[in-house]
Write a protein that binds this DNA or RNA. Sequence first.
DNA 1: CAAGACTAAACTGTCGACAATCGACGATTA
DNA 2: TAATCGTCGATTGTCGACAGTTTAGTCTTG
Lengths: 234, 234
Amino acid sequence: MRTMSPPVGLPALADTDLVGQVARLLTQAVVQGRLPPGAKVVEAGIARELGVSRAPVREAARLLERQGLLVAHPRRGFFVRKFEVDDIDEIYDLRLCVERHAAVLAARNLTPETRDMLRRQIDVLHRTADLDEPARQVEEDYRFHRLICEIAGNRRLLRLFDDLASELRMVIGLIGRLYDDPHEIARTHEPVLAAIEEGHPERIVAWVDYHIGHAWREVGRLVREIPPHAATKD
Amino acid sequence: MRTMSPPVGLPALADTDLVGQVARLLTQAVVQGRLPPGAKVVEAGIARELGVSRAPVREAARLLERQGLLVAHPRRGFFVRKFEVDDIDEIYDLRLCVERHAAVLAARNLTPETRDMLRRQIDVLHRTADLDEPARQVEEDYRFHRLICEIAGNRRLLRLFDDLASELRMVIGLIGRLYDDPHEIARTHEPVLAAIEEGHPERIVAWVDYHIGHAWREVGRLVREIPPHAATKD
DNA sequence: CAAGACTAAACTGTCGACAATCGACGATTA
DNA sequence: TAATCGTCGATTGTCGACAGTTTAGTCTTG
């Protein structure tokens, strides 16, 4: 057995974990649109840019492949996933399914602390609504919903939400600015929280449906209006 | 425009796709329990056994890592995921969420053809109930539920179901034989299909809840009885 | 005898290299 | 002129190697 000094709470200094870092950077590049949908991901290029060899880049790419951000074409390389209108519908359909459930669970687990966290996040939403930073607004919106999934207490559900969110951010980043009236959006979060506090499953589901459904229709409309990618799915 | 000789119906010869093959074999080894939970996956060993180098093995392992079958410990290697009682609950909770939704969607999309496919699958369930092949029974049960997800028509939902199913198969394979009375199990699929044919969402959800909930309780009970893995989660 | 220190083997992380393959571009032919 | 073929550069798939770390086993010491 190995001796260990008792844990002191140090944040486990960054295990170099090259693959993880590369994966994070690649993910950023994809969701921020710096690698646009359909773009070829040249291993040697990424490797050179990051100052590493191709091996870690390939492994990171495999992770993103399984996550759905990249598509692997054998002998042709990795490509950034393209989204069709169908994909938007699939993502929102699944998101609706997940968030309904998450909200009901969150209501069951709700404590004064977690309730306050949700309330504070809505405040943040209202504050950022004044700023002219669409990316920030999307981010804070996302954090509210993520909070619900955290409170739900199912790690797999949370991971699924994160996966869906990263896909959605790709799409939204693609559309450009999303919110017509950020304040309106911020307000529509309130009845969701109210329903969760109240705790009646039917009402929670109804409000989540309303809230997510609104975003769904909105994004769907924008994607249909500005369809810069009607090409083949590959 | 490009000229092409007319298609002749050649069966698109097998993409060797070494990584994919390795991933499939590894997945099998894991869900079949040949690599038991907690076991270390030695890259060189797998590579030698399969007659390939370590690079494809590592890439395949990354895929399984993202899928949740393996856990990567930096500088220590890949390990087969261990399951706690919490995990069972998480998986079934999410499965319930997914299958409720899938069943409702399936009802909406149901055609005479797909309905017959479901009926035939229930027949298969009854037939395999006579055989003494637990693995086969689990497999056919799984195929019924997967069929519902296929009919639902959301590819992401289907992939999620497959992921959950592979985790579940790990657990079930761990427990050994699952079904007390296979015929009883086969029968409990019938009201689910009946509800889907009928098409009332509330009733569908109720029967799915009943059906999955039964499996949940059963698996939970068995896992609690035979807990061969109460170790740290690592 | 138990706990800790030391040593050697095994394994991972990463790299550079090489063959196979793909895609583009120009040459050829009807 | 347009379609097809051939060639060449670029890129992927895979491998073996090496350095650094972890692990297991042995030995020492209180």
